[in-house]
Write a protein that binds this DNA or RNA. Structure first.
Lengths: 323, 323
DNA sequence: GTGAAAGCGCTAACAG
DNA sequence: CTGTTAGCGCTTTCAC
């Protein structure tokens, strides 16, 4: 018992005893068993992170930033890849429950909530980027991209574009729905008609973006494209480049997310830049919060995206002349 | 006890009893405590992964692939970012020790080994990409890039280049040393002189690459650059693009690693492509190996990199004429 | 300032 | 087939 007290720096131990214990412990290479600590009911210093994947640079950067932010609180991230499958999400939550994780930070998969409550035990939940209703007492941090999306449409309009395509995530995702809404509103506000064939949405992925871009090109009527999804944006851009479409001339392009190479493609890719670091900081703040108070107050927060102008969003002239 | 047996599917339980137990457990939302299991001495299903960062696309892809591979064995990755600092590496190892992790997969930091053995407890170690001596009984998986590096030099030579710069990782890293050796050998084999000012090595990073490229440009004598590091390659390339150097005309460039955008910059960036998936698979194979036998046989393996030709490695003519 | 007892959830080893 | 005992490493509680 004295040993225990010495190691946890309890004042009720003679200094000499304490020093001796600590010294010997070091000699023996003692490390406190996380398992024993956890078994006494305390939470583990583990935070689960559920992401669709790590190949998406946005997710990778988020994971990187969050790891760093949490390290300061002595918390460790355990990453689970869901591939946007509900089944995997459930599996991950169950494991975290078993591990008595302190909290989960998750990009919810599109499926239905079901009685996931069961899996969660009493661990704290933070939904990021997307949300799946408020039923669960989960905190939510979203990226507000309404303004930059509207700005994108307004700018393109001011450059003479009127046939603007939108390629984004499915509206079954909360993020997909809000981005699409922003685009639609933007079109209305600028007096443009919102034809159904100028909007393509689906589960977001590189290949989805690629294929959507092929469709848009096949139509041959659009003079500009706005993207509403990180991997989608990459897919669309890759399609355009592969087809030798002169981005910024034949067609104007506004991407979503800002992978480092967007600066260097052609004259730069205009895009909606996402505040990754701020998102991570806010998340860490909620999760790392030593809520001695068992307040399960659920927080709702937003971080703001920003439109970056580069060469890919140019006047429509070149293209309109061609029509 | 019967309950315990039922839940662990022990045959010595009447079927009806077992079913009843399992049913009731589900109703109650029972999950087996990982802590209790761990406390009885068993290893956790946790594999530590120590990486410099996750921003480097190569590391992110490796983490992604490894997560997926390990999931099949029911193992979970816990990622620690070392930022190539020995201090952080030690901290991470200690935490893994506390958690009774089953194994660590690590990209060793450049520092000295010290008596890290202490931190490791008896967990299995797999060093990837770089190695830090064989003293510790650690398995090692390296990327063999000797052949593609030599090929790169040979190809550039065949295109008329003779002033070829090499920008790579510091030789204090085993990877840096072997790449530099391959480049040097390549130069010799092609009858080229290896002047000291054509070689720049340092701790690998984007900015290191960027600055090295600035130096090379300032010299104004090189007609080609070969890179020996993923982030270095990005840094060099970004510098060239920012300075409006016509890559593949003013200067030939062979990168290291194959981020998706290399295909689309100018006429494509020639590069040494790394076998990420194979690396992950091999790693998972070693780590996931249910070594019921406590054989601590340490494995040494290699996966092979490959040179990809694209537009950035062109004949030297254009440049040589200019000199 | 120190120590003994008890219990967190689980299972190996031994009864019945 | 089912149950009892004991112990994994730790801390809280209550003596001394």
């Amino acid at each position: 018992m004295t040993v225990s007290r010495a190691l946890s720096n309890n004042p009720n131990v003679r200094k000499e005893t304490k020093d001796a214990v600590i010294k010997r412990a070091r000699e023996l290479g003692y490390v406190k068993s996380a398992a024993a600590t956890a078994m006494r009911g305390e939470r583990t210093a583990i935070i689960g992170l559920l992401l669709p994947n790590l190949v998406n640079e946005f997710y990778a950067r988020f994971a990187d930033s969050l790891t760093t932010c949490l390290e300061r609180c002595g918390l460790q991230l355990m990453i689970f890849l869901t591939n946007d499958e509900l089944r995997k999400e459930c599996g991950a939550l169950m494991k975290l429950h078993e591990l008595q994780a302190k909290a989960v930070v998750m990009v919810p998969t599109p499926g239905i909530q079901a009685d996931q409550e069961q899996y969660l035990g009493d661990l704290q939940v933070v939904q990021v980027i997307r949300t799946r209703g408020d039923k669960a007492n989960a905190s939510v941090i979203l990226i507000n991209d309404e303004k930059p999306i509207k700005q994108a449409v307004a700018f393109l309009t001011s450059q003479g574009h009127s046939r603007i395509a939108y390629i984004g995530g499915s509206p079954v995702l909360s993020s997909g729905a809000s981005r699409l809404a922003a685009f639609s509103q933007g079109m209305m506000e600028n007096g443009l008609t919102l034809k159904p064939d100028c909007i393509i949405t689906d589960m977001p992925s590189f290949s989805m973006g690629f294929q959507a871009a092929e469709k848009v090109l096949a139509q041959g009527r659009m003079t500009a494209v706005v993207c509403g999804g990180f991997e989608i944006s990459n897919g669309v851009l890759n399609c355009l480049l592969q087809r030798d479409v002169r981005v910024g001339k034949d067609i104007s392009f506004i991407g979503y997310g800002d992978p480092s190479y967007y600066r260097w493609i052609n004259n730069g890719i205009s895009t909606i830049k996402l505040p990754v670091l701020k998102l991570a900081e806010k998340t860490a703040q909620i999760v790392g919060n030593n809520s001695d108070l068992y307040k399960k107050e659920t927080i709702r927060a937003e971080v703001h995206a920003e439109l970056i102008f580069r060469g890919s969003s140019a006047p429509a002239a070149g293209n309109l002349q061609g029509l």
